[in-house]
Amino acid sequence: MRDRPDDFDEGLLRPALGEWEIEAATLDYAPVGFGDFHWVAADRGGRRWFVTVADVRRRTFDGLRLAMETAAALREEAGLDFVVAPLRAADGTTLRRLDRHRYAMSVFPYEDGTPGHFGDELPAGERALVIDLLAELHATPPPLPTPGRPVELTGRAGLEQALRDTSLSWLGGPYAGPAQELIADHAGVLRRGLEEFDRLAGRPGEPVVTHGEPHPGNLLRAPGGRRLLLDWDTVGMAVPERDLWLVAGTDDDLARYAEATGRKPDPGALALYRLRWALDDVAEFVAWFRGPHGATPDAEQAWQGLTGTLRELAKLSSS
């Protein structure tokens, strides 16, 4: 996130880092990503770590813990060296509470490299490298902690309420009115999207270990030509198309995956997860703008995300 959390005491971080036997000489906020908060810690010798603080009201602590444990097992036990996994604290855990109810912390190795950005268009050679990583991941036996990732929409109830209760004004902040108007203008598109989602959601498929969000923003080009996948909080069991729709841009990409795995991707499942991503994003942005918010860089990014996603949904609806 670009905005620092208003109600978070950064003084909690240094003593918590002691659980990883890290004595931080510097601790700098890193305004990157969308959803969690990040710092870069460094000791007096110059060694660095990437510190992530998650608001576990957005997801359960136990759910995030299972995801972190899964990523660690994929790296430690399955030997997947492209997994940037959380480090274990002295007691063996990968996620620690910072307070009783809201914030929890993980610590990651600091990896040098060039990060991508969400929405980047990867060239064919880069897509091929990522597809090869996904093929290896999908062929890996699931570690015991691996959570299931049902296909249902997380924020569906809130989105349907916003479509249904159009007479109630949104009063959360400066984007509330414009967002409500935008949702009303796209109500037909959203209802058709939900209907199409329900039609596609019953497709059968054998689940594998999936990353969940292998888009360019979670791809790091490391020295020596290595490619690393970041942000494993969405890891879980689902059909391969949960990952593939974000990477495969051509039939050649899908053929490469099929040759590597012996499994031909299902066009209907690819369409399902593409639609699911868009509807989930809209639901999250609706919850954001119906609640308290200010005119901050993160709110502006959310607004751009909402308008862009609705444009894409309108295109899908008309095709």
Score class of each variant (00 low, 15 high):
Thr26Tyr: 00
Ala89Ser: 15
Asp99Val: 05
Glu181Asp: 13
Ala24Met: 04
Pro178Lys: 05
Glu19Arg: 15
Gly158Cys: 00
Ala124Asp: 14
Arg203Ile: 12
Leu129Gly: 13
Ile131Pro: 07
Leu12Cys: 06
Phe285Gly: 01
Gly79Ala: 03
Asp81Tyr: 01
Asp3Glu: 15
Glu241Phe: 06
Ile183His: 00
Gly291Ala: 14
Ala184Cys: 05
Arg58Ala: 12
Asp165Trp: 08
Arg127Asp: 10
Pro141Asn: 03
His38Pro: 04
Asp81Ile: 02
Thr166Gly: 03
Gly193Cys: 04
Ala73Arg: 13
Leu129Cys: 11
Asp120Glu: 14
Met105His: 09
Gly212Arg: 07
Arg102Gln: 15
Pro5Ile: 08
Ala78Val: 08
Pro31Asn: 11
Ala238Met: 13
Leu163Arg: 01
Gly35Gln: 02
Arg276His: 11
Leu270Gly: 06
Ala283Tyr: 03
Arg263His: 09
Ser318Ala: 14
Leu13Ser: 02
Pro267Ile: 10
Arg14Val: 12
Leu122Thr: 07
Gly225Glu: 08
Gly205Arg: 09
Glu300Gly: 03
Leu313Glu: 11
Ala54Trp: 01
Glu126Met: 12
His293Tyr: 07
Leu163Ser: 01
Arg4Glu: 13
Met68Arg: 14
Pro142Gly: 06
Arg96His: 15
Leu219Ser: 08
Arg2Asp: 13
Glu312Trp: 10
Leu279Gln: 01
Ala24Asp: 04
Gly155Arg: 12
Leu219His: 08
Ala184Phe: 07
Val239Leu: 00
Arg226Trp: 04
Arg311Phe: 09
Thr166Phe: 00
Arg226Pro: 02
Gly217Pro: 04
Ser317Met: 07
Leu27Pro: 02
Leu168His: 09
Gly308Phe: 11
Val239Ala: 10
Asp112Ile: 10
Arg274Asp: 12
Gly18Asp: 10
Ala72Ile: 02
Gly45Leu: 10
Leu12Ile: 03
Glu181Ile: 12
Asp231Ile: 09
Asp298Val: 10
Thr154Cys: 02
Leu194His: 02
Thr140Cys: 12
Glu241Cys: 07
Thr261Cys: 00
Gly155Asn: 08
Trp303Asp: 04
Gly262Asn: 06
Gly188Phe: 03
Glu76Arg: 14
Glu259Ser: 01
Glu111Tyr: 05
Asp231Cys: 05
Thr210Phe: 11
Arg58Leu: 12
Ala24Glu: 05
Trp288Lys: 05
